[in-house]
Design a protein around this nucleic acid. Structure first.
Lengths: 256, 256
DNA sequence: CGACTGTTTGAAGACGATCAACCCCTGTGG
DNA sequence: CCACAGGGGTTGATCGTCTTCAAACAGTCG
C-alpha cells in the first residue's frame, strides 16, 4: 500500500460540503480547514488564512523538520505521512513525546520559549502545511473565530500532553495507546478496528516509557488472549471492549 | 508561621515600579499584572483588564474550587495559598496533575472541552483571582499584547504538562521536583535553597507517580547523603549541584 | 488523654529493565 | 539465484527497583 495513501484519496474530513468554491483551496487535511470553517468564516477570512499557508515537503522518512532550540516562527499541520517529536536526555536516550498524523498540529509548545522545545522528524514520506505563527496571531486579532480556534487547539494540547501521566501497567498503557490511535484515525474516516501502526516498536516503547522488549511481550499477550491480532505493523482489534477495560485505568483528560 | 504569609508581605514580584497609580489596583501576584505590564499596556487597557478580575475566596484547606466536568467559564490565578489539581481513576486512586502556587494560572486546559478536565482543591487557605475566559478572549481581540500573553501562558502549560514524561528513577523525579519547586518560589523572590513543601507527601508521591513510601525513602537517602535537610515540610538544599546532576536526566522542556 | 491522619520503617513480592541470543524480513552484490 | 549484512523485532533468563503489605511512629486536634 502506498505510504501516501492519505494524499491519494479524497480525505473523508474534507470540510463539510460548501457551495463556495474557495473552500476547495484549503488543503483538505488542514486543521484550520476542519476546525474553522464550520464556524462560518467569511470568504475574505478564508482567503486571508489561505494566504498564510505554505506547503512544505515532502520530507522523506528520517528527515528532520525542526530541531530542538531552533528559533520558533511557525507551526506545522500534517497533510500526509507521520511525524514524531522527541528529546534526547543527558544519557543520549531518546524520549518520544508524540506522534502526529494528518490533520494534527505541531509546534504550539514552542510559542512561549520562542524556540522549539523538541525535535521533529518524519517517520514516513510526509507533507506539511506551514503557518507563520506571528502572521496567524495578527490575523486572529481580526478574526475572533480564528483566535478561539487557536485557544482551543492549544488547550487540547495541554490535555494531550497530560495523557498517560500516572503509573500504569505496560498492558494498560499499550491498550490506551491502541485505542487513542484508532480514535485519531477514525476522526479522518478510517477504521478504528483495523489499522496500521506505522511507527517502529522502539518509538512506541519510548513514547510509553517502556522497553521495546516489554512492548513486544504485551503484544504477544494481547495476541494470545485474542484481544487483538498483529501482523507486522497491521493491527486488528478483536475485542475493543477488553482493551477499553484495560485502558479505563487511564483517565481521558478531555480528549474528544 | 502564618500560612498566608504570601498575602501579608509585599509581593516581590509586584510589577516593576510604574509611576502610574492605576497599576496598584492589580492584585500583586496576578499573572497578568506580571506578564502584561512590561509590554506597555495603556491605562485604558489596564482598566479594562482590571474590570474582568473577580476576587474569590478564601478557600480553606480541602475546599473544592471546581470539579471535573463542571462547565468551564473562567480561569483562576492563585493570589495566595496552594492549589492541587487531580483526577480519580476507575479504581478510586487519585492522580495529582499539578500544584499551583501564587502567580500561577489554573484552568487553561478546560478551554477546549468547555469543561474542567480535572478537580481543583485548595491545600491551604487560598485566595484566587477569577477571570471570565470569554470576556478575556473578547478583550484580547482588541489588545494584541493580551492575546500574545494568553498564547504564551497556554504554550507554557503544554511544556509543563510534558514535564516528567519518561521513566526516571524515584530519586531523579524527586530531585527534579525539588528544583522545580525552588525555581518557582524564586520567581517570586523567595529562596530557592530554603523553602517549604506545603503539600502532603502523599500528594507529592501521586504527582511523581510513586508510592508514598518510596518518597519517604528517597527523602531519607537525600538526608543521609547530605544533599538536603528535611524537617517536617521544611527543606534546605545543601548541595543543589548534586540535585541538578540527579535531575539532569529529565529534559527541561523550555520551562523558564 | 485518645482518636485520627500523615509519615516512616521493614520485609516480601511483582513488574519491568537489562543483557544476550536468535529470528525475520529486506535489500545488495556477487 | 544465493550469500551476506543489517535493522527491526522477538524470546528467554536474570536482576533491580519500586510496590505492596504490615506495623510502628509522630504530630494534631477534639
Amino acid at each position: 500500500m502506498s505510504q501516501l495513501h492519505t494524499a491519494d484519496t479524497r480525505d473523508p474530513w474534507q470540510a463539510p460540503p460548501v457551495d463556495d468554491g474557495d473552500a476547495e483551496r484549503f488543503c483538505s487535511t488542514c486543521v484550520f480547514g476542519r476546525v474553522c470553517m464550520p464556524q462560518g468564516f467569511s470568504k475574505d477570512a478564508l482567503n486571508r488564512l489561505h494566504c498564510l499557508i505554505e506547503h512544505v515537503g515532502p520530507f522523506q522518512a528520517g528527515q528532520t523538520i525542526f530541531r530542538i532550540n531552533d528559533p520558533f516562527s511557525a507551526v506545522f499541520s500534517v497533510r500526509a505521512g507521520l511525524v514524531k517529536t522527541f528529546v534526547i536526555d543527558d544519557k543520549g536516550r531518546e524520549q518520544v513525546l508524540g506522534f502526529y498524523t494528518p490533520g494534527e498540529l505541531i509546534g504550539l509548545d514552542a510559542v512561549y520559549p520562542s524556540r522549539y522545545p523538541c525535535n521533529a522528524v518524519a517517520l514516513d514520506t510526509t507533507l506539511l502545511c506551514r503557518f507563520s505563527f506571528g502572521a496567524m496571531a495578527n490575523l486572529a486579532q481580526e478574526l475572533p473565530g480564528l483566535q478561539q480556534t487557536l485557544f482551543q487547539l492549544m488547550s487540547k494540547d495541554i490535555s494531550a500532553a497530560l495523557w498517560g501521566k500516572g503509573d500504569y501497567s505496560a498492558e494498560e498503557k499499550f491498550a490506551g495507546f491502541l485505542l487513542d490511535w484508532g480514535r485519531r484515525l477514525a476522526r479522518r474516516g478510517f477504521s478504528a478496528r483495523n489499522f496500521n501502526l506505522p511507527m517502529a516498536r522502539t518509538d512506541i516503547a519510548s513514547f510509553l516509557s517502556l522497553a521495546p522488549e516489554t512492548v513486544s511481550r504485551v503484544i504477544r499477550k494481547l495476541s494470545d488472549d485474542g484481544v487483538a491480532r498483529f501482523d507486522r505493523r497491521e493491527v486488528e482489534l478483536l475485542k475493543p471492549e477488553a482493551l477499553r477495560k484495560l485502558a479505563s485505568a487511564i483517565p481521558n483528560l478531555g480528549l474528544d
